[in-house]
């Protein structure tokens, strides 16, 4: 999934450097804007057929590739359990 997230970061969040970023690198420090983060969220929602609840819509939830993957996995698991 990390590869997919990297591709989406490059495509939707205007972060061409995503391919070479560490899993734990701060995406905001790498140049992701709040506009870019929303575009990324929309792409993630569409690709993984999930919806981010409001309590996950904060800077931290989208701050690194690792955290994004955890968040999406958690939502996908929640959807399957339902």
């Amino acid at each position: 999934m990390k590869t997919q997230i990297r591709e989406m970061l490059a495509q939707y969040a205007s972060l061409p450097s995503a391919a070479t970023l560490d899993d734990d690198a701060d995406l905001y420090a790498a140049g992701m804007s709040s506009h870019g983060s929303v575009q990324l969220m929309l792409a993630l929602e569409d690709t993984f057929d999930v919806e981010f609840p409001d309590n996950l819509l904060n800077r931290r939830s989208f701050s690194t590739i690792t955290i994004i993957e955890q968040t999406v996995n958690q939502l996908v698991a929640g959807k399957e359990a339902a």
Partner: peptide, 11 residues
């Protein structure tokens, strides 16, 4: 513009 962007995901 900033709010409208956030409202694409925030309910």
């Amino acid at each position: 513009a900033n709010t409208s962007n956030m409202l694409l995901v925030n309910k």
